[in-house]
Write a protein that binds this DNA or RNA. Structure first.
Length: 578
DNA sequence: GCCGTTTTCGGCCCGACTGTTTTCAGTCG
């Protein structure tokens, strides 16, 4: 078995939980394994060290039994309990969890009664009537399973923010315009600004639930209706994403908004805090717990609820149970950066390389957005596929930018997105780089080198004193291409040591560096630049996705260099040159 | 299987919808 890190340990614990579900084990034992997996994922210490010291059971959520199993896993790379358990199941059976409506009980039933062990066999069993004949199943169930198998083929996976935000905002506007609607919100991962969403959750408060539900399921975006009840409806949109809507009374709105925003882990802590105060919290109200007689406070807004639970208001982006409760108790939550704080942005392309709009068009669009300055960073000569600029074309562009700056109060900065070559050297000489206002460096090729080599390559590039910032650190394309192997903490450390800014690439296909790493960067004193990587004037709007991601990373205005006004930004860009 | 400043035993978050039942199980979020 491969070397065990905390993610692979978490994966094995999750698989154990799934197998115990199929066996019909005690639900709390199953939950214990799920909790332990979650504890491993968020564990921030050195796993090998804690195992070596025998202190694993001190981690919350991990007790004696699971600590022993994890220790065996880390020490030997193997776990006999897991191996024995896994041998009991045909391998294809786990794929059936991916079919909507198929849970552990149904999967166990078709396996035991019909010897169905894969999605393909399940499909056949539904078509020939065997599934419908099972006790607890029926014609309707078989039909729904077949539909779910089709949906799974058609709509596999998740959706990037950039693909769904337009429709989501349209739906919000349309719901707000209805006469009987009081309050409207999008909840779930969309409100928390996750990089991808599996579905969309809408919440509406109204005294006329039927008409609002009717409107939702008959909207022109809808492709098919999955469920249509009095207070809860689910539809599939033409874009492929599932959209759910809950309808509540306005007095319930704050509770429902909080509940459906999540995350699930955040909600669990909220409920526990309510219980600790003699209340029970659900999506409709704060009530008296059994035997509790604590007075119930009046809650109208989410902030009232947090206050009642002894907390400062926690912004939705932070609700991932990654330390927000401790900070909210101690009044040390960050004041998160906002779109309106941005004064400019770097890393944008023009027709000189692979952009679709001219320098002038890009400048006008940025000014129209209310920005004070715009950095241009077209590709360098090694990016042949993107028509990268050679030295002569780059210097001509610099001259053009200087000339434009003389004619306008809007400021353009002349930069370049310089390729980091395989050995960590740069695509332009220092003499050329010295003539630019700033330099972005990015990796665009040789993605498959080892983690050690890639890390060395990137750090060498950052050590150049002309390099202002590091572009899209991991090269990932969400839902498309994984990040290349790179030691992110080491890169953050090098950024701190060299004074190099790290980009938060706001293109919704990238959102790179990932939000989970920004608290570490901030702790090390590394600054962030939120850049849209715009190849078209309309893509300057990607900044909003970047700000959402920065907020998830606990970043404040002072952490983001492009919040600085024009008078202060220029010196920051060349600070490394000394 | 985990947890504990009321507990080392007895709890563990909970409501809506669907379909199959004829009062509820399963799934989802």
């Amino acid at each position: 078995m491969a070397e065990m890190n905390k993610d692979s340990v978490a994966e094995i614990l999750t698989q154990i939980a799934t197998m115990l579900e199929l066996k019909g084990e005690n639900v709390f034992k199953i939950r214990a394994y799920q909790n332990a997996a979650r504890a491993m994922e968020t564990f921030s210490g050195n796993l090998a060290q804690v195992v070596g010291e025998g202190k694993l059971a001190e981690v919350p959520g991990i007790g004696k039994a699971i600590a022993e199993k994890v220790t065996e896993l880390v020490v030997t790379g193997n776990l006999s309990y897991y191996n024995i358990l896994k041998a009991e199941f045909p391998p294809g059976i786990f794929d059936m969890f991916g079919v909507m409506g198929m849970g552990p009980k149904k999967i166990a039933a078709v396996w035991e009664k019909l010897d169905i062990t894969s999605v393909a066999e399940l499909e056949a069993g539904c078509k020939d009537g065997r599934v419908a004949g099972l006790r607890g199943f029926g014609e309707k169930t078989a039909t729904n399973i077949l539909k779910a198998i089709e949906d799974r083929k058609k709509h596999a996976g998740r959706f990037r923010m950039g693909e769904i935000a337009g429709d989501a905002e349209q739906m919000l506007d349309d719901l707000r315009s209805l006469p009987d609607v009081t309050r409207v919100a999008a909840c779930g991962s969309y409100r928390r600004c996750r990089e991808t969403c599996g579905d969309l959750d809408f919440l509406v408060s109204t005294n006329s639930p039927e008409s609002v539900s009717e409107f939702f399921v008959k909207h022109e975006m809808v492709e098919s209706v999955i469920a249509h009840g009095a207070t809860k409806s689910s539809v599939r949109w033409k874009s492929g994403i599932q959209a759910d809507m809950r309808v509540v009374k306005d007095t319930e709105f704050a509770f429902a908004l909080n509940y459906f925003t999540g995350s699930k882990e955040h909600n669990i802590v909220m409920r526990q805090r309510a219980l600790a105060r003699g209340w029970t919290l659900n999506e409709y109200r704060l009530g008296a717990a059994d035997g509790g007689n604590a007075e119930i406070p009046t809650i109208r807004e989410e902030a009232d609820l947090y206050r009642a639970l002894g907390l400062d208001f926690i912004e939705p982006e932070l609700r991932e149970d990654r330390g927000e409760f401790i900070a909210a108790e101690k009044h040390t939550l960050p004041r998160l950066v906002e779109v309106s704080n941005l004064r400019g942005t770097f890393h944008n392309h023009t027709t000189a390389s692979d952009g679709r709009n001219t320098l002038r068009e890009m400048a006008d669009a940025a000014e129209e957005l209310g920005l004070q300055y715009l950095g241009i960073a077209d590709h360098s000569k090694s990016s042949v596929q993107a028509h990268g600029l050679d030295e002569a074309r780059l210097l001509a562009q610099v001259a053009e930018i200087r000339a434009m700056n003389k004619q306008s109060s809007f400021r353009l900065f002349a930069g370049s997105e310089v390729d980091v070559l395989k050995d960590g050297s740069l695509d332009f000489s220092d003499e050329i780089l010295a003539q630019l206002d700033y330099v972005v460096v990015s990796v665009h090729n040789a993605f498959s080198m080892s983690e050690a080599e890639m890390t060395k390559r990137i750090i060498r590039a950052m050590e150049n004193k002309y390099v202002t910032m590091l572009g899209h650190l991991t090269g990932r394309l969400l839902l498309q291409r994984d990040a290349y192997a790179v030691d992110i903490p080491a890169v953050i450390e090098a950024a701190a040591a060299t004074g190099t800014i790290i980009e938060l690439n706001a293109n919704p296909r990238r959102l790179d560096m990932d939000w989970r790493w920004w608290p570490l960067a901030k702790e090390k004193g590394v600054k962030c630049a939120i850049n849209p990587d715009a190849h078209h004037t309309s893509q300057l709007q990607f900044l909003r996705f970047g700000v959402g991601t920065a907020r998830k990373g606990w970043l404040e205005r002072g952490d983001v260099v492009n919040c600085l006004p024009l008078g202060e930004i220029a010196t920051v860009l060349t600070a490394k040159r000394g």
